[in-house]
Each structure stands twice: as C-alpha cells, then as structure tokens.
Amino acid sequence: MNDSIIRVENLTFVYDDGEASLTNTEENRGVKDISLDIKRGEYVAVLGHNGSGKSTLAKLLNMILTPTSGKIYIDGVDITAEDFSEDGIYDVRRKVGMVFQNPDNQLVATVVEEDVAFGPENLGLPREEIRRRVNSALSKVGMTSYVRHAPHKLSGGQKQRVAIAGIIAMKPEVIIFDESTAMLDPLGRRDVIGIMEQLNREEGITVINITHYMDEAARADRVVVINDGTVVMDGKTRDIFSKVDTLHSIGLEAPQGNELLWELNNAGVHIEGEGLTSEECVETLYNFLQGKTSRK
C-alpha cells in the first residue's frame, strides 16, 4: 500500500452541464469507473485522443475537480473522504504537481525567478529556502542563465521549462504533464521529454505524461490507454504497443515500428521480435532477413 503513490478506485466524474465551462471544448467529457494504481517512481504515459477524459482524470488527481463518486488515495491518504480538510487540499496539490499545455497561461510573474518562486511562496516557506529551491529548480531544467529574464521573451520550450521549474520548486512527488509538449516545436519537445525522464530517473519523481504522441508514450515504462472515459488498456509499454489491433479499434496508432511489423504480419510475413523503437525495428527486420536469406 505504501509504495503506491496514487490509487484510484471506481472513479467517476460527470460534468454538470450548468457547470461545464464555456471555454472547455474538448475536455468536457468525464470519466467512468476508473481504477488505477500508480507506484512511487513509475514513469507512466496516459494515452487517449481528445475528449477521452484523460485531462479530467489529471484534474481529479490534484483536486481541481471533485469526483462524483469513487475513491482517490494520494500517498495513502483518502482525499475523497468526507472529513478531508481544506489544508489537505494544498498538501495534495504540492505533492501532485501539474504542467499544462500552453506555457503562456501558467506563468504568473514577469520575471523568471519570481515565477518559479510563486509555488514556494504560496507554501509559506522562509525566504532563504525559497531562494535555494528557485536556484536548484532552475538549474535542473537548465534555465539558470535566464533568472532575470522576462518569460514572454523566451521560446515556447524555454517557457515550458520555466513552468516545470515552478513545479519542481514545490518538491512534488508526482508530476503530471498534461499534453505539455503539444504546443512545442520538436526541439522544445525533446528538451521537455528529457527533463521529464531526468526527473524520473534522478529525482525519483513519479512522472505521468498525458499525451497523444505515440513516440512519447513509447518511452514510458507503463502505458494506460483511456477511451471514452474508461481505462481500456493498462500494462507494460511493450505489451500495450504489441496489441496493434486493439489500439486501432479505438482510433489510436502504435509507434511506427510496431505498425510496420503489424502490416507485414497482415501481409503474411510473420516476424518474431520487437519494434517499439526504430532501432529495435531495424534489428528485428535485419535478423529476420538474415535468417531468411540463410534459409534459402
């Protein structure tokens, strides 16, 4: 029990039509009867297309939304309990940090360091501690030389790195990236993914990457596929992406390598092996061709 940082049981959330925000267009779908168990230090990708309810799930996990029914345990504490205190909410939000899609809309301050300090300031930490955390968070995302810069003059990827620093500075146990790379150029995307993985490996932070990029999801240890508000697949990345048929049936695609092997398979060329990354796929094909030529 103690090694699961997030545990969700039969979680359901329905958007009340009256409450549904006028600006949320695609995220207005709720979630139905979701059960999940995420271990401390895991690197999980949550896949699903727009409106599948994956953003809703994220917002439920740090109490931006309150579930209609079901239970959520964060670090062993039932945050859906009747007597859950107001102060507890802030503790949950500190533990479960969130980085959003649009970097512009999550930066509060006009100077990079002041923005990174925003979270720690809200936590009421002493000044010296805030300073320490700001410096260390900025160095972890490689933005130390931009301390006094104005965020609006940075590139998208740099802004997103500042936003991540703002979350790191609160010393979270989990960071949920809610499509955080969707608005970035390839370079910015690579940087953000790099930081994500570095935080997971070196800091032991549990990373949940909500995405619809297959190549990003393929890098995670575990993949959870959400469709129509329910978990349809959950397992090791390798296992999930080898079930190409199932993925297709809910309108998703597997990474290129898996797709290629699948196509070949359908065409009657049966190949044993993995194809999660391009290198792996090449390796598999090479071995196969070697075997075939030698058989001839």
């Binding site: 740090n62 969130m98 512009d104 809309n105 809200n122 936590l123 979350i167 609160m170």
Partner: peptide, 15 residues
C-alpha cells in the same frame, strides 16, 4: 477568457 481559466487552474495547482 480561456487564458484566464487556464491561468486560474495553474495557480490553484501551485497552491
């Protein structure tokens, strides 16, 4: 409006 809503959520997430 969209920005305002997203910013409010992001601020809440940062306690």
């Amino acid at each position: 409006f969209k920005r305002a809503e997203e910013l409010a959520t992001a601020m809440e997430c940062r306690c």
